[in-house]
Amino acid sequence: MTDFEPVQLEALLADFEETRESLIPLLQEVQTQYCYLPEFALRRIASKLSVSLTDVYQVATFYSCFSLVPVGKHVVQVCLGTACHVRGAPRVLDRMLRDLKLGTPGTTQDMQFTVRSVRCVGCCGLAPVVRVDNNTHPNMTQAKVRGMLKKYRSKEDRPAGEADEVDDAEARVHS
């Protein structure tokens, strides 16, 4: 995640036509660059496209790919599509939230992970699946959750004393 810089926004705005149709692609671009939609950007986009701020907020809150708050370093998408659901995805999600000490999907306090549930990433043949950033983890089980998260948590950010014993449990499942 990069800190938000107004200069970059201006460069980005220059690539889009000043029409209403540019609103969603523009918000998507800002979301991609900054991982969320800062208020400053929403205001600037509204004036640039001559769309009311209310309208911009309406669109930004209607579509699920937009976030008005910063997200964590890694975005974890737990697929809750039908195929994943019948193969146990809700239990994987529960375990994920529990391990990350989150009550509901959201961002961990240390800003390492943002957990989201998504409906179908289109890998139904390998259900249940979890996508972390751009990697898809097939055939997930509860036992694999902690080991998987650990791989993404950068070494310096790991809580002291987190040992490797979790991998034992994972190995057992595969044996």
Binding site: H85, R119, C124
Partner: peptide, 12 residues
Amino acid sequence: DEGDPGAFMDRS
């Protein structure tokens, strides 16, 4: 806009 959970033919 293949939104149905459990379908991925359009994507493929």
